[in-house]
């Protein structure tokens, strides 16, 4: 009962997803795939914040990566990228 407001988690912060829903795979909705140019990427994580499906994976070694099983290709990441490092490439240009 007696928690100070600083002990209560901030409302918008939820745990990072650890399980995926196998019954709602949305990767095949995508027709433009996000591709990050690692040379241009400043690792500001803006795309990681904005991705509505939590499909941006970030690691200090690899940098930004996308979970293509669930990425719908909405293009928010490429719109918000401040340096324009994320481009959208037609899905059929990739074999896999």
């Amino acid at each position: 009962m007696s928690k100070t407001y600083k002990q209560v988690p901030f409302a918008a912060i939820v745990p990072s997803p650890t399980v995926s829903n196998e019954h709602m795979v949305t990767g095949n909705w995508r027709y433009l795939r996000p591709v990050v140019d690692k040379g241009q990427c400043t690792q500001c994580k803006t795309c990681w914040i904005f991705c509505p499906d939590a499909c941006v994976d970030f690691s200090k070694d690899e940098g930004v990566d996308f979970n293509l099983k669930y990425c719908k290709g909405c293009g928010v990441c490429s719109s918000v990228c401040p340096v324009g490092a994320i481009s959208r490439v037609p899905e059929l240009d990739f074999d896999e």
Partner: peptide
């Protein structure tokens, strides 16, 4: 009606 549908369906 859209080409990418050939992949993954």
């Amino acid at each position: 009606a859209e080409e990418t549908l050939v992949k993954g369906h």
